[in-house]
Design a protein around this nucleic acid. Sequence first.
DNA 1: CTGTTATATTGATAGACGTCAATGAAAGCA
DNA 2: TGCTTTCATTGACGTCTATCAATATAACAG
Lengths: 117, 117
Amino acid sequence: MKAGLKVLNQPCCAPGAPPLPRDDAERLAAHFKALADPARVAIVNRLAGADDVCVCEFRLGLSQPTVSHHLRILREAGLIEVARKRGTWVHYRLVPEAVEQLAFALGGQSNPAPGRG
Amino acid sequence: MKAGLKVLNQPCCAPGAPPLPRDDAERLAAHFKALADPARVAIVNRLAGADDVCVCEFRLGLSQPTVSHHLRILREAGLIEVARKRGTWVHYRLVPEAVEQLAFALGGQSNPAPGRG
DNA sequence: CTGTTATATTGATAGACGTCAATGAAAGCA
DNA sequence: TGCTTTCATTGACGTCTATCAATATAACAG
């Protein structure tokens, strides 16, 4: 098989076989949709550079409710999660497995994983 | 830097630096948006399993105009391209570089690329 | 030129999405 | 108790998206 969507070890790409289990296509599409907004890409990128980041740092020229909205979408998609709460501050972190799964589906070798914590 | 969004060799992830050039975030988001639909994920997956595929094979329970619509979106996003036209038939193929770029942005090692054609 | 087949485009419509103001919830402080 | 701060939720509004029917375009057959 060439470089491309491997889609989680599915026996994809057979000549007459159903191209992709509908569920898998929907699951993948849902994950991509979570990244289909500049603000959310920026948030994920920011989280990729630190163990966890306070919500108060995600001012992207957007209102606070809008940032919260994007955090919720990423959270419900399983791409990020709450790392800790200190007082009224909330810190988010990436869910590396979810991101790696997407990279893998796109045909990339999921990273050697230089140790999470 | 941990596993995560590398975003095309940008000096991302600095403590106080602007998290991500707005343009790059928008470009990435646009690419992800192109994959944010089950039909389009199925199309790309199908193309990942062959050198090129005839449009007439993309019947996903959708009408012909709808399939054409999705092909257009993927084409304008640069993820697929017309491979050849034979008579009234049109064959599409993947643009491997584009997919690899996305996988790379997600932190995956872009595939060893087993020779394109 | 007429007819047929395979894609693409247009137009219309219902539903989803991004955004913000207003409000709520929870934690800390006086 | 009351006030402040941080984040989440709700409600409203305009825009975008997915979908299909209808139509156009392009290539071939006769």
